[in-house]
Structures are given as C-alpha cells and as structure tokens.
Design a binder for these strands. Structure first.
Length: 411
RNA sequence: GCCGGGGUGGGGUAGACUGGUUAUCCUGCAGGACUGUGGAUCCUACGACUCGGGUUCGAAUCCCGGCUCCGGCCCCA
C-alpha cells in the first residue's frame, strides 16, 4: 500500500517549478517597482480571525482544528485577513498609505476540480489608508500591468457595491446580503421573489435592469434609472483615472461580494481559457481594521489566484545554462577543482556515480545540459579544458578563463 | 454535499464488451557490449492490474463499496 499525497494537493516537478518561479519573479519585480514591499504572515492563525471576517459558516470550508493546547487554529484560507490583523497589531502608526504584497499558499477544504485545489497560492497586494479613487485605480492598474507582463488576455470587470446598496438602503442588512447572494448567482426570479415579499417589485425590476447593463454607457444608463448617486460619481472618477493608466474596464454592476465590509469599488478578472473556475483575480475596497479591533481605515487590494494565472499565461522561459564537467578517472581531482570554479557562475554538475566518460556525456545530454567541460590527461598536460557545446558538434581546447567567458556569454 | 467519467510497472498504453496457462507494446531507470567523447544500436536486469468485499471452479475483466483523479453543480472570503 503506497502513501499518497493528501487530496487536492500537488507535487511540482523541476520543470513546473522553473515556470512557477519565473512567473512569480515577474509579479514580484513589477509589484516592487510599483512601490510595494513584501510581508509574510503565519501559515496558521486563530480560527476566530476568519470567522469574524466571514461568519461561522465559513468553518465548513476551512482547515480548522484544535492544537495540543486546545486553541482553535486554522490554516489560512486567504491572506487579506492575516495582513489586516498584522496591520492592526503592529502597523497602525506606520505612515500612510502602506503598500504591501504577499505570495503564499492558502488552504481551503473544498472539493477539488479544474483550477481548484485544497492547497493553492495567492499573489496579492493591499493598500492601507489609500483613498478612492487613487488607491483603487492604482491596484487595478497594477493588476492589469501584471496581466500584460504575463501576456494574458483577460477581462477586467469593475463594479460598485454602493449602487446596489443605495437601491436597497431601506432594507435590513441581512436582506441586502441575501440579495447580493442572489445577484452573484444571477438568480433574477429569486430576487423578484424576495423583494415581492416586501411588496417592492419595482425595485426588483430596477435591480435587474441595472445588473444587465453593459457597454460604455452603463454608468449613464444607471444614472437614468436611479438618479445621480455618490457611487456613480465615484465610478465616473475611477473610469476617468484608469484611462490615464491606459486601462479600459468593463462596468459590471453584477459583481457582488456579499460581505458587509465591502461597500464600494470591486473588481474581478476572468479568463476564457479556464473551465468553471474562470476568475484569476479579485479585489476591491474594504474596511476590516475596525472589525479586528483597530481604528477603521479604508483599504483596497487584490489577490491573484496564482495557479490559475499560471495556466493562462504565455511566457517564454529563458534558456537554462547547465554545465556538466566530465572527466576520466585520472583527472577527477582536477575536475572537481574546475567544477568549484564554474559553480561561481553557473549551475554545474559533476559525476557522482563513478561513470565512464562516455556515460558522463550521455548523462549531460539526458539532463539537457547546455555545455560539457571535458578534462582528461591531455587537458591536464596543457592546463586547459575541452569545452563542448551540446546540441552541436563543436568542441575546443581552451583555458578555464576563456571557457567561463564563453559559457556565461561575458566578454 | 450532489451528478457524470476514469484509475494496468516511474511515464504512456494493449487486454475488459465475450472471465481461462507466464498480462502486450513503447519509454524510463540500472548494468553491459564500450575506461577519451553525447543523442544511435544490441544484450541483460528492474518494474503494474487503485483498495476492500461479492459472484465464480477461476476475476485486470462482471457486481457493490472505499480512496483518488478528471469534468460539471453548489460554494468561492
């Protein structure tokens, strides 16, 4: 009976890791250029951190357990709450805005399917204390810029929860949240039914018209339906500012995040190249600090689903330089010294299995090495090495300095 | 939690409908032919029926269940 990895987890092979690291590197580099600094929070937190944010029901989808001291602990299902916890604990006095980013694994106890795993990675940013529309637009523009850098074709949708909240402002918050849930499902008859219960079917019609708006005039059309609203004016500003960033979003009032602390700009990015789980990024403006016992402050951020992003990105990995030092028996000592020198510059392999020269070269070929450096009696006598470029027939006797120069491409 | 389709050496597969001797082929890995030159060739070795139960004289094959993978539903902070 074999041991298997737990359900919904994955092993990553070297080729995959190379791609993951490469894409991660692009995201990090870009984000740092935009002035964000990396932070890291614990892999597990108090369960309470997540239930405060999302309600007790969320426990069903969390890896929650009691530790040996009887504490309620959870593997983090996302990173916004931990980041805000950290902010409330230690960073409230830091000058604003605070711009942070993270890249880490998260865990959710859900049924795995395409694009959904029990352990998955998120890359995200948070701006704490940035004001609308500037902060919102910056994170949206950064997300868009990341898509460009990864050569991803995707759809950016922006909405504003204030629009729907203002239509529903006379209703109890629980009713509002029910409606948001139905909106998310696009369940129009459910919306009608719920609002009819409050003899308010004309509001249901308005809602349904609003969420079905699309195209460039959506904001104007919404204004015709509900009159001028502060949320619509905010959206106007967002669109105007984003155009300076050369970002062209689709206005979509259907985006619903049915949690109290989301109350204004929200956005989601979808790819058509995925299956049912087609969202690769989500974000928006939120207020969580107060919930966590801090002074309330407006924040905004996004999180990319790293695994899904990886599925749809189109990047060309840089060619890998790998050098194998191959030696005859009587030259092994010198070969090890040469290997050490090469390792100051490039990944270098040396035989660990007492293989013959032929077999060492065969190994070089099978691991896809770019160069082989051969050392035997002749090379020892001349104090030089034979540099062989694999994939071609070329080889040449050169001194070590020249050899390094050629491999690294330095002049 | 629900629906559907899968699981045969490390990877990819044939065999199943129609149960029957030693489970097919490719690849891989290890060693050798071959201790100064890679990709080729040849030889040798290694290595599998997802797990449990049932039907049967006999199960990789038929039936039931578990686990798990894939796709979808639900959910998606």
């Amino acid at each position: 009976m074999k041991l298997q990895k737990p359900r919904g987890t994955r092993d990553f092979f070297p080729d995959e890791m190379q791609k993951r690291r490469y894409v991660e590197g692009i995201m990090r580099k870009l984000t740092e250029r935009w002035g964000y600094e990396e932070i890291k929070t614990p892999t597990f937190e108090s369960t309470e951190l997540f239930t405060i944010k999302s309600g007790e029901g969320i426990i069903e989808e969390i890896y929650a357990f009691k530790d040996k001291g009887g504490r309620d602990i959870s593997l983090r299902p996302e990173l916004t709450a931990p980041v805000m916890r950290m902010y409330v604990n230690k960073m409230q006095m830091t000058s604003k805005p605070i711009k942070l980013y993270y890249f880490d694994n998260c865990f959710r106890y859900e049924r795995p399917q395409k694009g959904r795993f029990r352990e998955f990675w998120q890359f995200g940013v948070e701006i704490i204390g940035g004001k609308s529309p500037d902060a919102d637009c910056e994170v949206i523009a950064l997300a868009s810029s990341i898509l460009d850098a990864l050569n991803i074709k995707a759809r950016l949708h922006i909405g504003h929860l204030g629009v729907i909240r203002s239509i529903l402002k006379d209703f109890d918050i629980n009713v509002q949240n029910d409606i948001f849930r139905l909106l998310d499902k696009k369940d129009e008859s459910g919306i009608k039914k719920t609002l009819d219960g409050f003899s308010n079917s004309e509001k249901a019609d308005t809602l349904i018209e609003i969420i079905n708006l699309s195209g460039n005039d959506s904001i104007k059309a919404a204004r015709d339906l509900i009159g001028d609203d502060v949320s619509l004016r905010e959206l106007d500003k967002i669109v105007e500012l984003l155009s300076i960033y050369c970002v062209d979003p689709k206005i979509d009032f259907e985006i619903a995040r049915g949690l109290d602390y989301y109350n204004s700009v929200v956005f989601e990015i979808y790819s058509d190249e995925l299956g049912a789980q087609n969202q690769i990024c989500g974000g928006g403006s939120y207020q969580l600090a107060g919930l966590f016992g801090g002074k309330d402050i407006v924040s905004t951020g996004f999180a990319f689903g790293f695994d899904r992003t990886l599925e749809v990105c189109n990047v060309n990995l840089p060619p890998r330089i790998k050098v194998v030092v191959a030696a005859t028996d009587d030259a092994r000592a010198q070969a090890i010294k040469t290997t050490l020198k090469l390792r100051k510059y490039v990944p270098t392999y040396f035989d660990l299995m007492q293989k013959g020269l032929k077999s060492q070269l065969s190994f070089a070929n099978s691991i896809g090495a770019s160069h082989a450096v051969i050392i035997g009696k002749n090379e020892l006598l001349e104090n030089k090495v034979t540099l062989k470029v694999l994939g071609t027939q070329k080889q040449e006797l050169v001194d070590l300095k020249e050899c390094i120069r050629r491999i690294t491409g330095m002049d």
